[in-house]
């Protein structure tokens, strides 16, 4: 995908917000969190929110790296692999209690949610998004403007 910076940020917010939000709402009750349902939802939506908020900063870094690529392309493999550093940083933040407030988090619950959400969004971005948003790929990933 040949992203523009605005396209990256819009894609991050809207796809994780909408598709990630629906997925998180559906999958949370069956996540192996060993927490009460309310706490599970607190964990899962905090994780999703942080994927979006911290993701904007990650997108700035990816955009900078993209400038070193001759064709200004961001290969699909990069989009998939980006989940590794993002997932690790997020886990360290939450598990070590470094994040601004205490979030109930368990490793199995966190990783099941993170990996499944990441793969789902990546799969949607790899093809079906082009049917839903037919002009997006010609506009650097922008959904608006």
């Amino acid at each position: 995908m040949t992203y523009s910076l605005a396209g990256r940020i819009q894609t991050r917010i809207v796809l994780f917000g909408v598709i990630g939000g629906i997925w998180t709402a559906l999958v949370t009750p069956i996540l192996p969190t060993r927490l009460p349902l309310g706490s599970s939802y607190e964990m899962s939506f905090t994780v999703l929110g942080l994927i979006i908020v911290l993701g904007v900063a990650w997108e700035l870094a990816y955009h900078l790296l993209q400038q070193f690529r001759w064709d200004k392309d961001w290969p699909t493999g990069f989009s998939l692999l980006a989940g590794v550093p993002e997932g690790l940083v997020l886990w360290l933040l939450l598990d070590s209690g470094t994040w601004l407030w205490e979030v109930p988090v368990t490793a199995r619950g966190f990783w099941t949610l993170f990996i499944s959400t990441w793969l789902l969004i990546w799969a949607v971005l790899s093809g079906p998004i082009r049917v839903l948003l037919v002009r997006r790929r010609w506009r650097g990933g922008r959904l608006f403007g």
Binding site: M1, T2, Y3, S4, G7, Q66, W70, D71, K72, D73, R137, W138, R139, G140, G141
Partner: peptide, 16 residues
């Protein structure tokens, strides 16, 4: 280069 033009001419930074 892989294609006729750098990929972003069709829908990325280079098209902009």
């Amino acid at each position: 280069q892989a294609f006729d033009e750098p990929k972003a001419v069709w829908g990325g930074q280079l098209r902009d």
